[in-house]
């Protein structure tokens, strides 16, 4: 059994590593035979780091995210969260772990349909251990930041896609998780709403939130500190994006206006 830090995975002290997977594998048993969705992925994430996982559909990126968040049991491999080995946890232990440490944002929003937006967010805070007053205060704070104060008492069915995703983001951050896992957060949004959600993610990151983003949207991925490329269940590239911006980029770098 390897301990974090023994395998040369990351530069920097081991104590900064928040999430780490070693040889993570997920195999689905289907009628057509076993499907290897994730094959031996070694991934790590430091505190406050923003990592994007890109890849075509079918590359296993969503499965990887689900396994890392305990939404689905991995077939084999290790998962370490904050120095604690968590693969093989039962559903109940995963649930307790998620309460404190992990927030999720999904492509299809997945808000609880029979609760108002405010209740959706406060529920996450409450189960994270906050008192009723603290949960309410946190919700009001988040809604203020995300410009959702007017929608607090609406149910998801009454909200637009962009509003729902912002509520989902508030819900994910309500209990101040150490790690935010997001799966195609802009997949179901138009460009305006996408931009606004991405802006919010960026702001969270700037405030110190560790984020693991799974996406095929280059604009979303370009906000990350590091981009991991996944292909056919395996990592093919893992490179940091330069923090210093290249010499002034204009549209000319992509297209040329002629006339």
């Amino acid at each position: 059994m390897t301990r974090v830090g023994e395998v040369p995975c990351c530069d920097g002290p081991a104590s900064h590593v928040l999430l780490r997977s070693v040889g993570l594998t997920k195999v689905f048993r289907t009628d057509g035979g076993p499907v290897h969705a994730v094959r031996g992925v070694d991934l790590w994430l430091r505190r406050g780091e923003f990592v994007a996982v890109m890849g075509p559909s079918g590359s296993g990126k969503s499965t990887l995210l689900h396994a890392l968040g305990g939404l689905e049991p991995a077939t084999s491999g290790e998962i370490w969260l904050d120095g604690q080995r968590v693969d093989g946890f039962s559903q109940a232990r995963w649930a307790v772990l998620r309460r404190r440490h992990i927030g999720f944002v999904f492509q299809f929003f997945n808000l609880v349909s029979n609760m108002t937006a405010a209740d959706n967010v406060e529920l996450a805070a409450l189960i994270g251990g906050a008192s009723r007053r603290a949960a309410r205060a946190r919700r009001e704070e988040l809604f203020g930041e995300l410009e959702l104060t007017a929608q607090a008492d609406a149910v998801p069915a009454q909200l637009s896609g962009g509003e729902q995703q912002r509520v989902a983001l508030a819900r994910a951050l309500a209990h101040r998780p150490s790690l935010l896992l997001t799966d195609e957060p802009t997949g179901n949004l138009d460009s305006t709403n996408s931009a606004s959600v991405l802006r919010l993610l960026s702001r969270s990151h700037a405030a110190g939130q560790a984020i693991l983003l799974v996406t095929h949207d280059a604009r979303a991925a370009s906000m990350a500190d590091r981009v991991v490329s996944l292909f056919d269940g395996m990592i093919v590239d893992d490179a940091p994006l330069p923090s210093v911006p290249p010499p002034r980029v204009t549209a000319r770098d992509v297209l040329e206006l002629r006339g």
Binding site: A195, S222, L241, P245, P246
Partner: peptide
């Protein structure tokens, strides 16, 4: 070839990043 592709992707992403900043 993979390395070629990876390098090109990284370049595209950094350009994208620049464009995002510009848009902001």
């Amino acid at each position: 070839r993979l390395g070629l592709i990876n390098r090109q992707r990284r370049h595209y992403l950094s350009v994208m990043r620049g464009l995002s900043r510009l848009a902001e």
